[in-house]
Amino acid sequence: MNVRPAPDAERAALRDRRLVHRLRRGDTDALQQVYHRYRDDLLTVAMALLNDRYAAEDCVHDVFVHFAADPADLRATKNLRGYLLRCVANRAKNQLKRRQLQPVPSGDEQDCADDGDCPTHRLMASEESTRVFEALAQLPAEQREVIALHIHGQLTFREVAGQLDLSINTVQSRYRYAIEKLRTLL
């Protein structure tokens, strides 16, 4: 059964398509609007997946640079938010795979000079947020991914399943296991 998107979602989709259209014509203002609209969501998802602020910022940086250099066609961006989230998730996964990087539980405490150019000082997260990201880092990557996309990315289970090429049952069971584990950690 097809579920008709809510009018708000339709308006957002239309607005995004207009932005992408303008962006394809080289409109920097459109680029800025896309960035400001989605940067915090993308940073949060990247952080939830990587638990490393340097890597999270680099990940979002790369996604936006790639997006600006080669905006997807309009059909591919019916859901711009989902598209960008997937880009971030893919890049984060590639980073983890490439470097065999296991998320560092204490990602907030990496040494860096106390200057304004250090992401630890620039990116802001509350103490509670830091605690949550550390707890997420203790989950297996596949559970963390489901949590990040469903809760922080605000995607439905069906959308998450589509993005990860999994069945909806698998996604839901991963989510349940993750929440159970997080209940003991938080």
């Binding site: 960035y35 910022e57 940086h61 936006f64 992401p119």
Partner: peptide
């Protein structure tokens, strides 16, 4: 979990937007 957020400040914005 839903309340956990990571927010960028002006310097981050400048770096990412400048490159984009």
């Amino acid at each position: 979990i839903g309340r956990a957020r990571l927010q960028a400040d002006l310097a981050t914005d400048e770096r990412i937007l400048g490159a984009a």
